[in-house]
Design a binder for these strands. Sequence first.
DNA 1: CAAGTGATTAGCT
DNA 2: GCTAATCACTTGT
Length: 156
Amino acid sequence: MLHGGVGGVIVETEAYKGDAASHFVTRRHKGAMMGTTHGRIYVYLIYGMHHCVNVTSDATGPGAVLLRAIEPTHGVEEMLRRRGVTDVRDAASGPGKLFVALGLDPTMTGRDACETFTFLPRTREVDVATGPRIGISRAKRLPWRFRVRGSEFVSR
DNA sequence: CAAGTGATTAGCT
DNA sequence: GCTAATCACTTGT
């Protein structure tokens, strides 16, 4: 996935649908686009300091995919500079980090994801781990997390 | 492990 | 309208 010359391999995502924990319900004003659009960008502010980016999806009903982490491959220097870090593994290993690293903007909400980003087919087979294994301590956290097994670039 | 941060929402008035 | 509670996180002790 690329955006403005920077980008990388998506290594972690999380899926949301019309369930009680999704923004379709909990943030229904802005989250409503999960049910009315497909392939659009949905950005939101969380905890007053972090932005996260989703792409609405699922032609069968409300749905969206949260982009959680990428493995930087393009414009690595640019991302490190924007993030103010030196370790590539810290550049985009989390939703808020990814947002900063790619130089995204909250006003992108509603735009066509395929016009704003460039999505490329994967170049290698990957071993995808899913499931509720990660700390479900926080109430309302869904088990629909997908991550590349063994990657150094996923969130903690 | 705790705190910081502000938009959004729910629940009252 | 207003106030309090919530939150799909990151960073620094």
